[in-house]
């Protein structure tokens, strides 16, 4: 990988350093690659320590849950209503197929609606075959204003 010489979006850089400062997200190797208005994309590299079943080499659902939860929380924080902080109320994840061993996993989350106190999100996770998601989820997050 080469460093991008262009000056970065300062908002993205700030959010990236925020995600990297979360110990559990850092332990899983997560990296924020896009931050929009109420949307976030976070990637996680393949790592043999995260395997759920050594017979197949497939990443454990728990690591994918953690990635999807982090992407969802980041999408809430990036919402134009500028929440001060957020916490997951609930998250439902459907595992549609095993992630292909060796491939990076990318979660895309978007805020679909906000009220005064709650944000509703949708999130999908894909490996390098972006046409067939590995998992999809919906969740609700608290909004601290």
């Amino acid at each position: 990988m080469t460093e991008d010489p262009r000056p970065q979006d300062p908002r993205l850089a700030l959010a990236q350093s925020f995600i990297r400062a979360l110990p559990h997200s850092a332990a899983l190797g997560m990296d924020l690659v896009h931050l929009g208005a109420g949307e976030a994309v976070i990637t996680m590299p393949y790592d043999p320590r995260l395997v759920g079943d050594p017979a197949t080499g497939v990443i454990h659902g728990g690591a994918i849950s953690a990635l999807m939860d982090t992407a969802s929380g980041a999408s809430v924080m990036s919402h134009p209503s500028a929440p001060r902080s957020t916490a997951t109320l609930d998250l439902r994840i459907d595992y549609m197929r095993p992630a292909t061993p060796g491939q990076r996993i990318t979660a895309r989350a978007e805020v679909t609606h906000v009220t005064r106190s709650v944000a509703f999100i949708r999130v999908t996770a894909c490996d390098e075959d972006t046409a067939r998601p590995v998992a999809q989820g919906t969740g609700t997050f608290t909004l601290e204003r």
Partner: peptide, 12 residues
Amino acid sequence: LHGGATAAFLEV
């Protein structure tokens, strides 16, 4: 605790 870590703990 990270919500993802606790979710993973429950799943295992």
